[in-house]
Simulated assay, not measured.
Amino acid sequence: MSVVALRLAGPLQSWGAGSRFVRRATEREPTKSGVIGLVAAAYGLRRTDPLEDLLGLRLGVRADQPGQLMRDFQTAQRAKRERDGSLTWHSLPLSHRYYLTDAAFLAVLEGDRSLVESIDQAIRAPQFPLYLGRRSCPPAGPIALGVTDDDLHTALATWSWQAGSAVQRQHRERVVRLAIMRDAAPGEPGTESMRDAPVSFDPNRREYAWRPVTRGSVEIANPHGVVDPSTEHNPMSALGGPSCS
Rank of each mutant, 00 (worst) to 15 (best):
M1C: 06
M1I: 03
M1Q: 08
A5R: 11
R7M: 05
R7C: 08
A9G: 11
A9C: 14
G10D: 00
G10A: 02
G10E: 00
L12Q: 03
S14L: 03
W15D: 10
A17I: 15
A17T: 13
A17W: 05
A17P: 11
S19W: 02
R20Q: 13
R20H: 12
F21H: 13
R24W: 08
T26E: 01
E27A: 13
R28D: 05
E29H: 12
K32D: 11
G34L: 04
G37S: 07
L38S: 05
L38W: 01
A40E: 09
A41K: 06
Y43K: 09
L45V: 04
L45G: 02
R46D: 12
R47P: 09
T48V: 13
T48M: 12
P50H: 06
L51H: 04
L54F: 07
L54C: 03
G56S: 11
R62H: 04
D64I: 00
P66R: 01
Q68F: 02
Q68P: 02
L69H: 00
D72Q: 10
K80M: 09
K80W: 11
D84A: 13
G85N: 13
L87V: 14
T88Y: 06
W89Q: 15
H90Q: 15
S91K: 14
L94V: 15
L94D: 05
S95N: 15
H96S: 12
R97W: 01
Y98C: 07
Y99A: 08
A104L: 03
F105P: 00
V108R: 00
L109G: 10
E110N: 10
E110L: 01
E110F: 00
R113G: 09
R113T: 11
S114C: 02
L115K: 03
S118R: 13
D120Y: 03
D120C: 10
Q121N: 04
Q121T: 10
A122H: 08
I123H: 00
P126D: 14
F128P: 01
P129D: 03
P129R: 07
L130V: 01
L132E: 00
R134E: 02
R134L: 06
C137A: 06
P138I: 01
P139V: 06
P142N: 12
G146F: 13
V147K: 10
T148L: 13
L152A: 14
H153P: 09
L156Y: 00
L156C: 07
T158V: 08
T158G: 06
W161E: 01
V167W: 08
Q170T: 01
H171A: 15
R172K: 11
E173H: 10
E173N: 12
R174Q: 15
V175I: 14
V175A: 09
V175S: 12
V176W: 02
R177H: 03
M181T: 14
R182T: 05
R182H: 02
R182P: 05
A184F: 10
A185Y: 12
P186F: 12
E188P: 15
E188S: 15
P189K: 02
G190R: 04
E192M: 15
S193L: 13
M194A: 05
R195S: 14
A197Q: 12
V199C: 05
F201G: 10
F201L: 14
P203T: 04
N204L: 10
R206S: 08
T214G: 11
V218K: 01
E219F: 04
I220A: 08
I220N: 00
G225S: 12
V226M: 07
V226P: 02
V227D: 01
D228T: 06
P229A: 14
H233E: 06
N234D: 15
N234F: 02
N234P: 05
P242N: 07
S243N: 04
